[in-house]
């Protein structure tokens, strides 16, 4: 009891410090991107959306890995250690939701930029298409979880996650053979690629800021999911322990320990 309260207090403190640091770094990133970094010679100020678009595209590819690893861990632990498996499941669902958020930001900022620079909102280029498919896959994952019956949600979700992870590389290559219009990769795309050194501070600050933000949301969502699981557990226990003969209306169980 004593240690549970102090652990809770410690995690609350770490969370608050982390949030404050994240907000500071986000502010620095914002200032760097809007005011300090030089205006793009060809695109003008529109080019500054790059500092939000590319970090979210990068992070939208990082969080699915967390989802995949957590899902594999869930499938492995499901029968061996159900409690640890529940933790893995909380990480999986949180990571999937954060992936969808970053993929959505990437798609929306990309469309805004495309409208201003290409003159069209959307084109079926391979990178746009694969990002859209990534988004669709993880929305399908969340939909499956939502529609599944109680008690099977985690297993079904984990299965879909494995399929999605197998699908992503195939989507990537197939669409790449299919179409190409997006500007070639900024990093590792040949002799002309790479950022101008003057753009680095703004870019790196924003990557760091959004990574910290993503981490914060992820941890927060995991904590919420853990609470929901504990509540489920408690409801189950209450059902088991209730006594039909001595049933008292409005009798509340002891809840203090669970939170």
């Amino acid at each position: 009891m004593e240690s549970a309260t102090s652990t809770k207090r410690t995690s609350l403190m770490i969370g608050s410090v982390w949030l404050v640091l994240t907000l500071v770094v986000l502010t620095i990133g914002f200032r760097q991107a809007l005011f300090l970094s030089p205006t793009d010679a060809e695109q003008g100020d529109v080019g500054r959306i790059f500092y939000w678009h590319v970090p979210s595209a990068m992070l939208g590819l990082v969080f699915p890995y967390i989802n995949f690893v957590a899902s594999l861990a869930f499938l492995y632990l499901r029968r061996r250690n159900p409690l640890a498996a529940l933790t893995a499941d909380a990480w999986a669902v949180a990571a999937a939701e954060v992936s969808v958020v970053f993929a959505s930001i990437c798609l929306v900022t990309g469309m805004l930029w495309g409208r201003a620079v290409w003159g069209i909102w959307w084109t079926w280029d391979w990178r746009l298409t694969s990002e859209l498919l990534l988004w669709l896959l993880y929305v399908a994952y969340l939909m499956t979880r939502r529609m599944s019956t109680d008690g099977q949600t985690s297993t079904l979700g984990a299965i879909i996650s494995v399929f999605a992870a197998l699908d992503v590389p195939l989507v990537y290559f197939s669409i790449r053979w299919f179409r190409t219009q997006h500007p070639s990769p900024v990093f590792g795309g040949g002799a002309d690629s790479g950022l101008d050194p003057s753009m680095y501070p703004a870019f790196l600050w924003n990557v760091l800021a959004w990574l910290m933000w993503g981490g914060f949301i992820l941890a927060f969502r995991v904590a919420v999911e853990r609470r929901r699981q504990r509540l489920d557990q408690l409801e189950g226990l209450r059902m088991l322990e209730s006594d039909i003969d001595n049933f008292k209306l409005g009798g509340e169980p002891e809840r203090g320990n669970a939170f």
Binding site: L133, L136, L137, A140, M143, T144, M147, S148, T149, Q152, L156, I159, I160, F163, A164, D167, L170, V171, F173, S174, I175
Partner: peptide
């Protein structure tokens, strides 16, 4: 998998189509 969900007729295309795209 759809058997284990509430609206199974809807579930199959929702999962099958995105995964079958390649």
């Amino acid at each position: 998998l759809g058997l284990r969900t509430r609206n199974r007729e809807l579930m199959l295309p929702l999962v099958l189509f995105p995964i079958s795209i390649p």
